[in-house]
Write a protein that binds this DNA or RNA. Structure first.
Lengths: 245, 245
DNA sequence: AGCTCTGGCTTGTTTGTACAAGTTCGCCTA
DNA sequence: TAGGCGAACTTGTACAAACAAGCCAGAGCT
């Protein structure tokens, strides 16, 4: 673990534990540098990490301010339903309802950087939190990873983790589109809600470290079961609003 | 404009214009430093900016990779419906349907850091894109900014911009919670949809540069009109999934 | 042909220095 | 008392240097 990560982690703990309540000022960079016997540049990297997490804000000339005190989750917990559920103290389970190979559609070819007509693996999964059905996941895997996915146990908890352990596949980047849709008849049946009732939809494309697309997924959460949360600032602005399709 | 921002802007333009297509390698830091006659540290600040925007990814030892080529919008465009609409080429309009002072509820007192029972301003607005009703906005303003809000023109396009010009108020930080809800009868009537149909809800709290909360808002978008978009990576992870209320 | 290994390239981390720019607060003055 | 001024403090930007760690392609070997 790098020195600046240690310092960031130490400060984050202090904030989460209430040592620096919301609205309080953080010590100056010079003071932190002295306290941790590090150069000012190293301390700046540490607080930049906290700023990216939305925990602290800063303005030139003034002390840094604590903006929030909730620990933000890791990348893995955003991409893996099971890992997220575990970290929240829920028991996650899942079932593969169908799984079949087929040639990819033109739009999928673009999203996954495939040749038109190349084979993909189409998987439908139902996910549960503490036994309650919460999420319908329709995932399209690129052909080159399909064999490894097909080898997975149908009741497998964490696909992400299994793929890492079996073939060393690491998800590294993701793009996510979030909107609301009405439940179709299949969604309604699986989630146990009425047709037309609101669902939170997350469409995502995930790629490896090399930027190679692995999967494209359409996840639909039962309303009330999940909320997405973001902190942004004039400096860091990850969330973007787009016009509907 | 800082040197590293110039470099970032230059590289971003090149990426957006297709000079570096998705999947391509960026020049090495040393080469960029030479090209721009800047120190390597300065170049690193520039590419860190692009990485935060999700445009490029990096791994130690390998060249940086272009991951996306869409320009992400500014903070203002996320917080201000009007400024976002304008940048997307839409014509935005809005109407204040009601506006009244009342004592704040206990939960609002916490969210806006107010004394229990302190006065707040409650505003209901309907927003349109090219004439079409798209968004119902229920905003609660802290008492100290209420007079300035009440002085605004009821048909005012951009509240954010007007507040900046009239009292110099700058929104600097925001927290956003995104989920899906069914349209209530008021929502349905205003947006011209059926009761119970899906809406995309964005609840947000916005604060000033000093970390002082200004407004708390519940915005509901008609399904299909707006999508939120995010890019994340193992390094930068702004988006968080949370359990429902 | 296929494999390993190594050397050079590239990004990651840390330190040190210097100056610019903005904030804060006390002091002085009108 | 109210306002203006300035000094001290704090964050932002930029440069330079050095080493660590990981990647990659080409040389050489089997």
């Amino acid at each position: 673990m790098a020195r600046y990560e240690q310092i960031a982690s130490d400060l984050r703990d202090a904030i989460v534990r209430g040592g620096y309540p919301i609205g309080a000022q953080l010590p100056s960079e010079a003071e932190l540098a002295l306290r941790y016997s590090a150069a000012r540049g190293t301390v700046r990297q540490a607080v930049a990490l906290l700023a990216a997490e939305g925990l602290v804000g800063s303005r030139q000339g003034a002390r840094r301010i604590v903006l929030g005190s909730e620990r933000s989750q890791s990348f893995a917990e955003l991409h893996s339903f099971a890992q997220w559920a575990r970290s929240m103290g829920y028991r996650a389970s899942g079932t593969v309802l169908s799984s079949q190979r087929r040639p990819c559609s033109p739009s999928e070819a673009v999203r996954l950087s495939l040749e038109p007509g190349e084979e993909v693996l189409d998987v439908l999964r139902l996910r549960r939190l503490d036994g309650e059905p919460v999420l319908v996941e329709r995932t399209v895997y690129a052909g080159w990873i399909a064999p490894a996915v097909e080898r997975l146990d149908p009741g497998c908890e964490s696909v992400t983790q299994e793929l890492y352990e079996s073939v060393g596949l690491v998800f590294a980047y993701g793009e996510h589109l979030i909107d609301a849709v009405a439940a179709g008849s299949e969604d309604a049946r699986l989630l146990g809600v009425r047709r037309g009732s609101p669902l939170l939809r997350q469409r995502r494309v995930t790629t490896t470290q090399e930027g190679r697309p692995v999967e494209s997924s359409d996840d639909r959460y039962r309303a009330g079961s999940v909320t997405f949360s973001i902190r942004n600032s004039t400096a860091a602005n990850p969330l973007v609003r787009r016009a509907g399709d």
